[in-house]
Simulated scan of single mutants.
Amino acid sequence: MTPVDRRTLLRGIAGTGVLLGVGLSVGVAAAQQASATALLPISSCDDWGARPPAGTPVVVNSPAARILVHHTVMDDTPDTTREQAYTLARDIQNLHMDTNGWLDTGQHFTNSKAGFLMEGRHGSLDALRAGDHMIQGAHCPGQNSVAIGIENQGNYMDVEPSVDLWQSLVSLCVVVCQQYGVPATEIYGHRDYLSTTQCPGDKLYAQLPRLRSEVAAVLG
């Protein structure tokens, strides 16, 4: 893979998508060198067939201050297609609206285990592109107006995230940090702000220092 610098990375933020698939090499140089594997779009709510929200999502007229990492805890599946990722997004929205009583999907973005990234709550993708405002979420009490929530498919209490999921998570965090001016040190797990949850699972939570390091390496 060919190393890319910060400017090359950020040139991927254009049109309907952002630069995804940015991972780091495995081993000693993992925190020092970023590589681009693909330029992929984040699928919008329209792309994956979202229901209309039950109300108007609240616009917060200031940039996000941090990122919160979550896991879905839903049963895993061997299906790694884009269509399965879209089904996941619809299942999450149905759960959040019909069971939780929320107006829309709670998190801002969803990451499938195959690395497909999708908009969660309506308006989150346009807000990310603008970089000067965010949509109020429903992913963590006290943080919904200041933190971007990223939901990762799977249960990471006992297993490590897949390479594809990890790379897309790094990529999305890089873009969120760049667009909103969020330092890589402000990437946290759900449990950091809600003591009653084990989210995003012990294994993924233990990888957050690595996540911060890899994101910081790309941002320079």
Results as ranks from 00 to 15, higher is better:
215 V>W: 13
40 L>A: 14
175 V>L: 12
173 C>P: 01
11 R>G: 01
43 S>M: 14
186 E>G: 00
198 Q>N: 14
122 H>L: 14
143 Q>K: 07
169 L>K: 08
61 N>I: 01
50 A>L: 07
180 Y>G: 02
128 L>H: 04
128 L>A: 02
131 G>V: 09
9 L>M: 15
217 A>H: 08
215 V>P: 05
77 T>M: 01
11 R>H: 04
43 S>V: 01
144 N>Y: 05
174 V>F: 08
142 G>P: 08
175 V>Y: 04
38 A>F: 13
54 A>N: 14
163 V>I: 11
1 M>H: 07
49 G>Q: 08
176 V>P: 02
42 I>T: 04
124 S>C: 15
14 A>D: 07
17 G>D: 05
115 G>Q: 10
122 H>N: 05
195 S>A: 14
112 S>C: 10
27 G>N: 11
9 L>D: 00
211 L>N: 03
177 C>G: 04
22 V>L: 15
170 V>L: 14
173 C>V: 03
28 V>P: 05
169 L>A: 10
30 A>C: 07
30 A>R: 10
14 A>P: 00
184 A>D: 12
191 R>A: 11
179 Q>H: 13
99 T>P: 00
194 L>H: 06
55 G>Y: 11
74 M>L: 12
121 R>V: 09
112 S>N: 06
96 H>G: 02
34 A>M: 14
1 M>P: 06
